[in-house]
């Protein structure tokens, strides 16, 4: 696994403790962090939600699967799914190769933009990774 110092953790995104990231402006794109994709290993399947589905903050909205494991995806803030990354159906490995770009997972319309403020910025997320003993 990568050392924390080698992780690609971009500025300008918000992160949650489950290792999802979310953009802070529309379209509110969501994906998983470099830490998450590295820990999960090569992805073999991504289960995406339906466009139009609504979820509460922390709800499971899909899965990331490796050859051996099934890992839930949790929505970092409440909202409605407005787009899903259909490319992941044919190439789930995009989440591994480009977790903040081609490997984005969904876009949402947050139902309460104030919830974004409860998430971590990159400095806090890096500290979370360090103190959680990863």
């Amino acid at each position: 696994m990568k050392d924390i110092k080698d992780l690609n953790l971009p500025e300008g995104l918000k992160y949650d403790v489950e290792h999802e990231w979310i953009a802070t402006a529309a379209p509110f794109r969501i994906g998983v962090s470099d830490f998450a994709q590295d820990a999960l290993g090569d992805l073999t399947y991504v289960e995406l939600p339906e466009v139009g589905a609504t979820f509460a903050k922390g709800d499971e909205f899909g899965t990331l699967e490796s050859t051996k494991s099934v890992s839930p995806l949790f929505l970092p803030v409440a909202g409605e799914i407005t787009a899903v990354n259909e490319k992941l159906n044919d190439d789930p490995g995009l989440v591994n190769s480009d977790p903040y770009g081609e490997g984005w997972i969904v876009e949402i319309t947050p139902s309460d933009a104030a919830q974004l403020e409860t998430l971590m910025d990159v400095a806090a997320y890096r500290k979370h990774l360090e103190t959680a003993g990863h």
Binding site: G41, D42, T44, S66, T67, K68, G93, N96
Partner: peptide, 9 residues
């Protein structure tokens, strides 16, 4: 468990 190339490769 795997190397950086990944378990699928």
């Amino acid at each position: 468990l795997w190397y950086p190339g990944g378990a699928v490769k």
